Amino acid sequence: MSRYSVNEFVNSTKQQDKGEGLFELETPRLLEINLNGQVWAKAGAMVSYRGNIKYEREGIFEHGIGKMFKKALSGEGASLMKATGNGKLYVADQGKKVSILNLQGESIFVNGNDLLSFESSIDWDIKLMRRVAGMMAGGLFNVRLEGSGMVAITSHYEPVTLLVTPDNPVFTDPNATVAWAGTLEPEFVTDISLKTFLGRGSGESIQMKFSGNGFVVVQPYEEVYYSQQS
Rank of each mutant, 00 (worst) to 15 (best):
M1T: 15
Y4K: 00
N7V: 06
V10R: 10
N11E: 11
K18H: 10
K18M: 11
G19I: 06
G21C: 01
E24R: 02
L25H: 05
E26H: 09
T27G: 07
R29V: 14
R29Q: 15
E32S: 15
N34A: 08
G37Y: 02
V39A: 09
A45W: 04
M46E: 09
M46D: 05
M46S: 01
V47T: 08
V47S: 04
S48E: 14
R50Q: 08
G51K: 03
G51R: 12
N52E: 06
I53W: 03
I53E: 05
Y55T: 15
G59A: 02
F61L: 14
H63C: 05
H63V: 00
I65R: 11
I65G: 12
G66R: 00
G66I: 02
K70G: 14
K71I: 11
S74M: 14
E76G: 13
L80D: 04
L80A: 04
K82Q: 12
K82L: 10
K88N: 12
L89D: 03
V91P: 01
Q94G: 13
I100F: 02
N102E: 15
E106D: 08
G112N: 10
N113T: 08
L115F: 03
L116G: 02
S117E: 07
S117I: 05
F118S: 03
F118Q: 12
E119A: 01
S120Q: 10
S121R: 00
L128P: 07
V132A: 06
A133I: 08
A133F: 10
G134V: 08
M136Q: 02
L140G: 07
F141D: 13
R144V: 15
S148G: 07
S155V: 00
S155Q: 06
E158Y: 01
P169M: 00
T172S: 04
T172F: 03
N175L: 14
A176S: 10
V178R: 08
V178W: 05
G182W: 01
G182A: 04
E185I: 09
E187K: 14
I192W: 10
I192Q: 09
L194P: 11
T196A: 15
G199I: 08
S202N: 09
G203C: 08
E204W: 01
S205I: 04
M208F: 06
M208Y: 02
K209V: 14
F210S: 03
S211P: 02
S211I: 04
F215I: 04
V217D: 00
Q219L: 09
P220G: 05
E222Y: 07
E222R: 10
Y225M: 02
Y226T: 14
Q228F: 05
Q229P: 06
S230Y: 13
